Amino acid sequence: MHGRRRQTTQEPTVDEREQNKQRVEKYCALNGLVMNNRAQKVFSKDALETTKRLLDLNTELHTVWNYRREIFTHLDDWQDEEKRQEMLETELAFLLEIIMKNIKSYWMWNHRIWALQSLPRPGWERELGLVAKLLSVDARNFHGWDYRRFVVKQLKKNVDVDGQLEVDAREFAFTTEQINKDCANHAAWHNRSKLFPAVLNMAKNEPERQGLFKKEFDMILNAIYTDPDDQNAWLYYDWLLGIQENGEEKRKLLRDKVATIRELLELEEDSKWPMIELVGALIALEQQNPGSVTSDEKKECLDILSRLKEVDTYHIGRYKDMSKTMSQQWGGIC
């Protein structure tokens, strides 16, 4: 802030500098030992322990993760399934410690996938519970969501069609839970879009199918009213309309969307995304059913684009181009 003296970092003491120096020297020596072992192709349990100590200090050493995997596969115990199971269970416990230190480490997640795929008896259900706990700490972490999708894929490999549908339904319920906690969770919306087609396929008839669409739109409306300018719910809204194959239902849903946005704009008149979505919905309606959008509604679109030029000046060129194109297509209505 202006007028306030900037706080400076306190200089480390002599003891602190000495401790830092010793830590750096220890790390460099350990790194040198691991790299020398790798160059000499040392594949022993002692070498494995050395890589563990180094990775505990720095999870981003992808070369060391690769070397660690090499060591495992060269050990005599690797050929015995029971011993391999025990070794890799211990490895998963070590990785859990690493995750808590750095959940965003690509190399750690890759190594965990390798360990699970190498297990004679992997516990995929356990992994699903683990990643649920991790997402409860950091609900938007895309590493966790990517890993969850991987685990679900593995679970579905080991069950019949009914079992796969059950897994999809459970995952769909999980995304509902996450979105209800945080409607701005982009990863949860994205995952939901991957699962909803499978949920639709479970519908026994058209009324049940349309009922599922209605539930989705109800959830979207709740998210939109919670945060009108959060883009995630709007993107899912548009995606959902895009997969609606029933033309009559799609036109009805677009009309419902127009009515909802108008109500919303009465409360948030300068809210950017509702304005953009209202224009998009009316354009889509006209494309679906030419002549269904009135002259007043076309003028409403152009008025909104004029307001958007003031509200969202960063994209003013886009709104000018849209106004010009729509005026030409709609017979010069201004």
Score class of each variant (00 low, 15 high):
H190W: 03
R6D: 10
Q154I: 08
E11Q: 04
D15V: 13
N180Y: 10
A115P: 03
D168I: 10
D56W: 09
A281R: 04
P12Q: 00
R84M: 14
V137E: 15
E266A: 13
E127M: 11
I220A: 01
R17I: 02
V24K: 13
R84P: 02
K101L: 08
I179G: 01
E81L: 13
G163E: 08
E18I: 09
K101C: 14
I103D: 05
R262K: 12
W109T: 09
A173F: 04
R148Y: 14
D138H: 10
R68M: 03
D230M: 13
L96P: 10
N201A: 14
C28Q: 13
S271V: 00
N158I: 12
E166K: 13
R5Q: 15
N20Y: 07
R126E: 12
D15N: 05
W114F: 12
G291R: 00
R121W: 07
Y236N: 02
A173H: 11
I179H: 05
H143P: 00
P120K: 01
Y67L: 06
L285R: 06
V24M: 14
L285K: 08
K45N: 13
Y314M: 11
L195Y: 01
Q85K: 11
E269H: 15
E277R: 02
F94V: 02
G211K: 01
I179P: 00
